[in-house]
Structure formats: structure tokens, C-alpha cells
Design a protein around this nucleic acid. Structure first.
Lengths: 119, 119
DNA sequence: TGGATGTATCGAAGTTCGTCGATATAGATC
DNA sequence: GATCTATATCGACGAACTTCGATACATCCA
């Protein structure tokens, strides 16, 4: 769950949101690793565009076949980026027939935003 | 200025914040590049810890000499990471005598948070 | 002036990342 | 079952990144 992970990352386990963990106290090495892994998943132009296209689609969901062309990258590369985003928790996948539909996980993006936001 | 850059990134130049650009409409290639560059600057455990230590210091400002030891990396490496964060606009530097003090730019972090936040 | 100290830059080594073509897999259709 | 289509995985290559030791630069102090 998003909120659970958010409390985990505060090193102290406290849930008071006076400030974002990033600017409230020094991050533990583990918390920094965890946050860096999520940021790294997002820190690529192709992946940002993929997320924004998925988010702007009907039901915040899109098929791979709709993503390859606007991104301008090969199908294996798009598939790779989608997997990275899925492993980081930003997308979920559901297969319907031959097609794979990727759906946004808004809480994951919102959680990241909250981790960076100031009081 | 932070807000200026924020409107720039919306591709349309509109400043209405119904949703964050990321989840409102497909990002242009240029906007994706710009956002990715900022996220990449933050997407490293050492840099996240540096930022959080600086942010938690007196006046959101810290000297390099205070940063090398808690991070556990060599002085040149810490200096390199600080430069990356400065180039991305998250820190500013001011030399006072022999010492270099790095200071947090809260608006830069806040802007990134806003770009990711949902309605 | 000369040595000591804090910081930045340089060059190199090792690793990770983004991308592709080729290929494997799974589901649909005939 | 044979074939076609959509997607995932594999292996490889080049680029970018993280880190370090060595060194240059700048400032202070004796």
C-alpha cells in the first residue's frame, strides 16, 4: 500500500507530515536507495512520455500497440520501458486476448510527489 | 523563476493546474527531456542524502566539509554530486573564505513535486 | 613568502543503461 | 493443426554514469 510505504521511508516510522522526508531529516541509506530507485524509473524521457500517454488515455489505460508509434522507438524497447515502470509500481498490466493493457497507478506517482513536497 | 518554468513545461503555456502536466496530457519530447533531466539529477542515493542533509542543516545550508564524512564517499565524488545538483538547480553555492557552502533551493524541489502531483 | 587546508577538476576503471535486431511465446483465426 | 499477430525475452553494442586517486587552484596563516 502506498501509505504504508510512505511511513516506512521516514526511517522513524512516524507519519506526521510536517515536511517531506527529503527535507525534514537526513535520509537513511536504505531510504535513499528506495527513493532513488523510484526516481530512476521515472528519470527517462521515453518513460515519462509513456506514463503521460497512458495517463491521458481512456481510463488511464493503453495498449502497447497504441504506444509504440507515438514514442518512436522499437517495440522491444517500449516493452522494456513498460516493464521498468511496472517493476517500480507506476503501471500495472492486464492481458486481454493478444493485447496487453498498461494502466496508471496514480497513488504511486502521488506518493513520490508527496515525498518531495515541502510543508 | 520556478513558476515560469512550470508554465513552459505544459507545452500549451497554460497555467491552470487542474492536473499535473505529467498526467493531464501527453508530454512533448522537449518537456519530457527537461523533466527527465531534473529527475535524473535526483535519482541517486548519494545525491538524495546530500540534499536531505543540506535541507536539515542550519539555514538549509551546509559546507562540503560537513558532507563528505556522513556520506561515506571521497571528497571529489561528493564535489561532483554537488555540482550535478547545482547544475539542475536544486542547490546554490556561496564561497566564504576557503569553505564552500551549498544551500537548498526549495522552490526547485517543490516545482518537481508539483509536476508530479495529481489534481 | 611559503606551507597548510578546503575545494574543484582531470583522467581512468568499472558498471549500468538505452537501444536494437533476432527470436521465443501466447493467443486468435482459418 | 497451421498460420498470423501482439507482446516479451535475449544478446549485443555503444553511451552515460559513479567512483576513485592524482593534481590543480584558491585562500588562510605563520
Amino acid at each position: 500500500m502506498a501509505t504504508l510505504e510512505l511511513t516506512d521511508i521516514t526511517a522513524g516510522g512516524r507519519a506526521d507530515l510536517c515536511c517531506a522526508p527529503l527535507v525534514r531529516e537526513p535520509l537513511s541509506a536504505a531510504a535513499a536507495d528506495d527513493l532513488a530507485r523510484k526516481l530512476k524509473a521515472l528519470a527517462d524521457p521515453a518513460r515519462l512520455r509513456l506514463i503521460s500517454i497512458v495517463a491521458a488515455s481512456e481510463g488511464a489505460e493503453a495498449c502497447v500497440c497504441d504506444l509504440t508509434e507515438p514514442i518512436g522507438l522499437s517495440q522491444p524497447t517500449v516493452s522494456h520501458h513498460l516493464k521498468v515502470l511496472m517493476d517500480a509500481g507506476f503501471l500495472t498490466r492486464s492481458k486481454r486476448g493478444t493485447w496487453a493493457y498498461y494502466k496508471l497507478v496514480p497513488e504511486a506517482v502521488a506518493e513520490l510527489s508527496a515525498l518531495l513536497s515541502s510543508p
